[in-house]
Design a protein around this nucleic acid. Structure first.
Lengths: 345, 345
DNA sequence: ACCGCTTACGTAACCGGTTACATTGAGCAT
DNA sequence: ATGCTCAATGTAACCGGTTACGTAAGCGGT
């Protein structure tokens, strides 16, 4: 209960320096000329009394919180750190504060936003932290919003920043087809409702179609973006005697790839001799798998940075890009059958 | 410049519901009895006008920000996500907000805190985000503080939470000595000023001494907590014809271990046949190195959680643990010479 | 001398909540 | 009926900044 922190206020400074509060405020904000002698007196008193202006009071008076919020579903994802690094850099460049929260059910009154217009001047919403309805609601209330790895539903105009899921996947699958002559490619795709998974599937199909390879529903394993469940799904698939032949696997996620590797190994299936395996994300472990995993590098930090950038556009009144698509790079290692460690963009 | 957000205030609600602002406030905070009919009227009006209380005004009136800050040197560290997850969980449990910032030099006036008593009710300071002097300064100003992976200088009483660096290292080195009969162990230690490195070195020495093995200054490589610099330092060491013989390496960090692996491989030195290698941190890549790395599991999320917990103790007036030491586990993989995948605590 | 214009600075209202204190009226004992 | 207590509600001051507006001094032109 240490209540009385630095309870010295702008009025104390004004009194001691024998000026008005307005003058102190003007000196603090440097937004009007204050004569040098007054400035000196003020500064001196401030140093002496160790004065720190209360952000809260300032925010109230200015009707501006100088704070943006980042909402994520959870923090356990690997690339969360990179995303945050990008965001934080941009935020601090603008001298803003960054509030971070996960969305979660509140005990009683259902959903309660830890972040919102009461808190922040604008928000970054990652993937499916919020339902479309909740997003629409915030948007209606005029709260500046930028979505990350998610596009707005309907035709509401909210800036989005994400990565080229479709194009990258198409390129990767094309590589499998053209360079390694694979034709029966198994798709291990993530959660039904995750947008990244959706576009990766679209890219996957496009690559197939443009090489006249039919898309086979039986060569799809659904809902497996986690290592353990990918492992189990893959095992189940392999143990089903009726499973179709395949000569390559696109795992849609590096973490899932680990599970896939394990399952294949247990069945004595060699990578890449028997089947090529490729992932997505270039997580840290990708180069250390045996064999090293061919995958897609996503510029996560850059995504964070530019998402914040769009939000600041909204806050400044300049208009933001409605959709920012970051390009990805494919890094060829040996799990696809390549022998070199190369990159195609 | 969308200024006028939801500019409806508690007074609007009071007027429409034909009650006083005090009553509305009391209803909102549930801190005094309000008769059911008034409650209903108020709730109805609030729903209808879509009222959201401004956190800022509330904070000003209550002289409490309901916010804690986390200060880190940078966000690029792997375990940052886990740390944050732990902190965030605790923070949201207390219905607080979490402000995250990196410390950085401000363009003009030298060091400027993005976080402080103007912003937060208390702060978590990670490792060397702040100098001892800066910490002391904040502490003098009565700002509740908890340090993470760092202890306070002098005898100021600031709660600290960290991990058992010394004990874990001692156990790990003892394992090398007793199980694998290693006697000439190379110490690759991190930054001179990093406290974790310091304690790891102490534990290293203690293990040596208790087995009557002299500590050899020539078997130390300093300042190498990063992959690349560890690689270079190790190469330089190996290429120096006068370098002492060694049969094991303690890298003090998993990331550094990667660099060490590479350097050893280039010189045709086999792990673990020629030298044992052990790390610290159990980063994600550890199990995927060839051979899989024996290392120490640090409960990072738990560290974050309990640091926040101590801070809330300070905020509630109950007294916090002055030092919280989290126990670590050693996970034996094959880089030390073991054949199993085992854990000792 | 007077007028007008500019400029540095002061006064006081305001931001949107909380809460100490005042007020009102019901309930009950005398 | 009177006085007292107590509980529900209202009034207005306050939190610590910002800023619209007012004021007075300085200056130049006639």
């Amino acid at each position: 209960m240490t209540k009385q922190t630095s309870s010295i206020t702008i009025r104390d400074i004004a009194r001691e320096a024998e000026v008005s509060v307005a003058t102190v405020s003007r000196y603090l904000n440097q937004n009007a000329f204050v004569s040098p002698d007054l400035s000196d007196r003020i500064q001196e008193v401030m140093d002496q009394l160790d004065y720190i202006p209360q952000a809260t009071a300032r925010q109230l008076a200015m009707r501006k919180k100088n704070t943006i919020g980042l909402l994520v579903p959870n923090m356990h994802n690997n690339f969360f750190a990179a995303l945050l690094a990008g965001i934080e850099g941009e935020v601090s460049k603008h001298n803003y504060n960054l509030l971070v929260a996960t969305c979660r059910m509140n005990q009683k009154s259902g959903y309660q936003f830890p972040l919102g217009s009461h808190n922040t001047d604008g928000m970054l919403v990652f993937a499916d932290s919020l339902s479309d309805k909740q997003i629409a609601q915030l948007h209606e209330r005029q709260l500046p919003l930028v979505l990350i790895h998610k596009s707005p539903s309907g035709n509401i105009k909210i800036p989005t920043v994400t990565i080229e899921n479709k194009a990258a996947t198409k390129k990767l699958i094309t590589h499998l087809i053209e360079e390694h002559h694979r034709k029966h490619i198994l798709l291990v795709r993530g959660s039904e409702y995750q947008e990244d998974s959706y576009w990766r599937e679209v890219g996957f199909k496009e690559a197939l179609f443009s090489h006249n390879i039919p898309f086979d529903e039986n060569l799809v394993i659904r809902g497996s973006f986690e290592r353990e469940v990918a492992y189990k799904s893959m095992k189940a698939f392999l143990e089903d005697p009726t499973h179709p032949k395949f000569d390559a696997i696109f795992t849609g996620d590096d973490d899932a790839a680990v599970g896939i590797y394990d399952a294949l190994k247990e069945h004595g299936i060699r990578i890449p001799e028997d089947v090529s395996v490729v992932g997505f994300d270039d997580s840290q472990i990708a180069p250390f798998l045996t064999p090293p995993l061919t995958t897609v590098i996503a510029p996560t930090e850059e995504v964070g940075r530019s998402a914040a950038e769009q939000l600041f556009c909204l806050l400044n009144g300049s208009d933001p890009a409605l959709v920012t698509l970051h390009t990805t790079e494919i890094v060829l290692r040996s799990s696809c059958g390549c022998s070199m460690n190369n990159t195609i963009t």
